[in-house]
């Protein structure tokens, strides 16, 4: 066993567990009506956020979607700040103004969950333009789903980013469904990497259930981008184990299909791999669970104790405030 590799794998496993368990608690809190709004779960897709985020520097930027708890946590936004946002508290990472779909942390260059499908791509393209014009070597990672590939904004941004050779890592989380519409029912060409490559950028598909494969692909893409090679596109083939949101009765997916994908659970897959390599003992796994459970417990307690914004402050943050 290589200790450095074991340590690295443990870190990946910890991040995926944090996301999984965070969302499992969110389901409980939601069912108990302690948190509200829309809740789009990432369960099953954790390897994508964790694998990509691990290849970014702190100075790289991040734009994501409304299914972004995983991205925010993997980026390093404190769990309590994310949870406080779910509770609508001023201690939330968006002061309770954004909620589940709009997690921001500009200190960590997280420019938000964007809840208009495709709407984050122009923003990411512009952040990358600013970095390029200032000769910075930062990368902007932009996450979106397969549904976004049908949007005009996707194609406008592929063209613009490739034309201007902007440092954008386009991360398409292909979970096969745009809410309830399957990829094959919505898109004439379902090979999404092929479509991106038509804009003249490196693009390839990756097994999004394998965190190490995601990490390796992202690493290669980030290196290309940082070297000035322009944007790259990753089609991360993944699956959400839960419905689109808490309102969704999931009538459009075959139960056998869901079961097949669950057999490829990214957390389970890494756990097995680590056990086989002698990198993870039962005790270590238990300790990891305990550690994450403790963090969660503190996050929920801290979040719920956070203050609510005074109603008199309702119209703050519409315009800049005098400093």
């Amino acid at each position: 066993m290589n200790t450095a590799i074991a340590k690295h794998h443990t870190a990946l496993l910890r991040q995926m567990l944090r996301i999984r368990k965070f969302e499992e608690i969110c389901v409980e809190l939601y069912s108990a009506t302690r948190i509200r709004g829309f809740l789009h779960l990432y369960i099953g897709e954790e390897a994508v956020a964790v694998g990509v985020m691990n290849t970014l520097d702190a100075s790289d930027a991040l734009v994501t979607t409304y299914r972004e708890h995983g991205h925010a946590l993997a980026r390093g936004v404190p769990m309590e700040a994310v949870m406080a946002e779910m509770f609508g508290r001023t201690t939330g990472c968006s002061r309770g103004r954004g909620g589940s779909m709009h997690l921001f942390d500009v200190k960590r260059r997280l420019y938000g969950g964007n809840a208009i499908v495709g709407g984050g791509l122009p923003l990411a393209t512009g952040i990358a333009l600013a970095d390029r014009l200032r000769n910075e070597s930062h990368v902007t990672a932009c996450f979106f789903g397969d549904g976004a590939v049908a949007e005009g904004e996707f194609h406008e941004c592929m063209n613009l980013a490739a034309l201007w050779k902007l440092p954008v890592l386009f991360c398409c989380e292909n979970n096969l469904y745009a809410m309830g519409t399957s990829l094959v029912r919505a898109q004439a060409q379902t090979d999404l990497a092929l479509r991106a490559s038509s804009y003249g950028m490196p693009a390839w598909a990756v097994d999004g259930m394998d965190v190490l494969a995601v990490e390796q692909a992202a690493q290669r893409a980030v290196e290309t981008i940082r070297a000035g090679g322009g944007p790259c596109f990753l089609e991360l083939r993944t699956y959400r184990f839960r419905a689109h949101s808490m309102y969704d009765s999931d009538r459009y997916r075959d139960k056998a299909e869901i079961a097949r994908w669950k057999e490829r659970d990214p957390i389970e897959a890494l756990t097995v791999r680590m056990r086989d390599a002698g990198e993870l003992t039962d005790d270590a796994l238990k300790a990891l669970h305990r550690e994450v459970d403790d963090e969660l417990q503190r996050a929920v307690a801290g979040a719920e104790a956070g203050p609510l914004e005074a109603v008199e402050d309702l119209t703050r943050f519409v315009y800049a405030e005098e400093s």
């Binding site: 930027a61 122009p122 923003l123 393209t125 512009g126 990358a128 200032r134």
Partner: peptide
């Protein structure tokens, strides 16, 4: 949108 992103990032 790129203008928005660039403005957000400091230009």
């Amino acid at each position: 949108g790129a203008g928005i992103g660039a403005a957000t990032a400091g230009l």
